[in-house]
Amino acid sequence: MTTAPFVSLTWTDPLTGQRGHLVVDRLVRGVCSGGLRMRPGCTLDEVTGLARGMTMKEALHYDPESRYVPLGGAKGGIDCDPRDPEAYGVLVRYLRAVRPYVEHFWATGEDLGLTQDLVDRAAREAGLVSTIQAVYPLLDDEKTARERLADAFRIEVDGIGLDELVGGCGVAESVLTALDRAGTPYAGTRVAVQGLGTMGGATARFLSRAGLTIVAVADIKGTVTNPAGLDIEALLAARDAHGTVDRSVLRPDDHETPGDAWLAADVDVLVPAAVSYAIDTANQRHITARLIAEAANMPVLPEAEELLAARGVTVLPDVMVNSGTNAWWWWTLFGDIGPAAEEALTHVRRSMRTLVELTLARAETDGTTPRAAAHTVAADRLALIEQRFGRHR
């Protein structure tokens, strides 16, 4: 899992000088999968770590009885503020530059800073048929499969697209599974969520509807708190495209606090669902939560996680917790599930609960952290995939 990546490259935009990166950690059946993010400060090292994580996310969902066979892991990243007026042009030029990779072996989609609609629009302008066209040769019936996925993307549930909901459903189910194993009732369990975008927003909805109390939500403007619980549905309805909440919808007993207040909130569960590297060795000491669910990619630095573990804080790792979105794409495209909200969410819940149960049991048996256990499970399944399909072909 620590070998050199199959492909690693950096591109420089000729008009703005902004830099973009693409890392392919490995291929399975000649194809890899991983989203494209855009954020200021995005580095090649960051993208390399994310690509390696995608290899593990894919492997964790391997089921030899499924039509979907996990792909290799990859990631793209652009060092640019998505709110910059030049950002869309940079995105289009990046996709033009990496077009041969997308056409032949890199299936990609939205990630931090980008929506799927925006990525799809830019991809068309860059001359691509689809951002996942590299997978099409693996399908038994491409036309039917593409129609099935398109139908799934058109589904909305209470104002939020199914493609947004599945990821948050997976995060929420991970939290609920951990609480069930610990014998912790949902009622009275307090939660803070950093980020109310695609992943954080859906996670907040599912946890709130499960009976947990969301007492703090952070976005780029700061943290909104209410010890009695926030009205999550009202906040979700008042978000802009970047997950920023219109403060005019806040109730009199909702409070605006500094941006980092979510970290030290008096809660049982912490859900970092925004940027990478949010929790470091300095600020981890302010965390009072006993459970952290990594909805974002790489939000907890390894050194910080060691300190948290020493304090008895459990970190549910990103490679497991936020893997539901990626798996849902492929379950739908390959035909393991149909384009229906109830079927999709039921499948995500069942799959994530099974995976989290397995990982936490492995951690308990081995006397390791959930992250180490998840890596072990992924390595075991990756070995089975390689036995069946080989590597880098």
Rank of each mutant, 00 (worst) to 15 (best):
A97D: 11
L15I: 00
R353Y: 12
A327R: 12
R146V: 14
N283A: 01
T213K: 01
A310C: 10
L112M: 09
V224T: 02
L333M: 15
V377C: 06
Y186L: 13
G312P: 10
V313F: 03
V98P: 07
G20Y: 04
A87P: 02
L128F: 00
L114H: 07
V348P: 03
V98K: 11
Q18R: 13
M56T: 14
F6S: 14
L114C: 07
L235G: 04
I132C: 03
L355R: 06
A293C: 07
A304T: 07
A363M: 11
G188L: 08
E103I: 05
W11V: 00
E305W: 02
G53D: 08
V275A: 13
I132V: 11
M54I: 15
K221H: 10
G170K: 08
A374T: 00
L118F: 04
D366P: 13
N322T: 03
V135K: 12
V7S: 06
Y94N: 01
T359G: 06
L308M: 05
E147L: 04
N226H: 09
E103Y: 08
E342G: 10
V119L: 02
V267N: 07
A304C: 10
S174F: 00
E65M: 12
P85H: 13
G229L: 06
T213L: 09
V191Q: 14
Y136R: 06
G170E: 00
T325K: 01
L22M: 09
V191N: 14
Y136F: 11
T189W: 11
G170P: 01
H286W: 12
A204C: 09
D260Y: 15
M56F: 15
A383Y: 12
E142C: 15
K143F: 09
V193S: 11
T359Q: 08
Y186Q: 14
E342W: 10
V313C: 05
L358I: 13
L316G: 06
A327S: 14
C169H: 11
R247C: 11
A378L: 12
P14W: 11
A216G: 08
D253R: 09
T314H: 05
V245Q: 01
A309E: 04
L360N: 04
G243R: 03
A204T: 08
V191G: 15
D140E: 15
G335C: 02
A182Q: 14
L196D: 02
T368Y: 06
